[in-house]
């Protein structure tokens, strides 16, 4: 089915080697943007940035993530960009340019506390 082919084309398997324990996990990404990943072996949280071609642009260990899905990645999206405080706009703009800024987890936690972060 064309729809099925389309779905296949919009999904990519990615191998993620945990930055702490080194264990490799195979996860699938469906969309660009920031994703949260928690290593199922050691519990280390990570953030990954996926580009429009579903390529991995950044993958880093962080102190915490606002969402976790066992053996999978959680896509993090802003619910209503118009309500993002001006202090957090540079973070969003950097992500749109394909850059995950330092201390990105702080921005995500702030968005989460404001109720502006959606988890898919």
């Amino acid at each position: 089915m064309p729809g099925g082919l389309l779905m296949m084309a919009l999904k990519k398997e990615v191998r993620l080697a945990c930055k702490r324990c080194g264990e490799v996990s195979l996860v699938s990404v469906h969309a660009e943007g920031v994703h949260a990943f928690v290593c199922p072996f050691c519990g280390q949280p990570h953030l990954l940035l996926v580009d429009a071609n579903l390529g991995l642009r950044d993958f880093r260990a962080v102190s915490s993530v606002p969402a976790r899905k066992p053996f999978d990645v959680a896509r993090l999206r802003v619910r209503d960009e118009r309500l993002v405080p001006t202090s957090l706009k540079p973070f969003l703009e950097a992500v749109k340019r394909g850059v995950l800024p330092p201390n990105a987890e702080e921005a995500l936690e702030a968005l989460s506390e404001l109720g502006l972060l959606e988890v898919e």
């Binding site: 202090s87 201390n103 702080e106 936690e109 506390e113």
Partner: peptide, 15 residues
């Protein structure tokens, strides 16, 4: 406390 936590996050984000 929750306000200060938010401020602290922004401060950390700004380094």
């Amino acid at each position: 406390r929750e306000n200060l936590a938010m401020v602290e996050r922004l401060v950390k984000l700004a380094g």
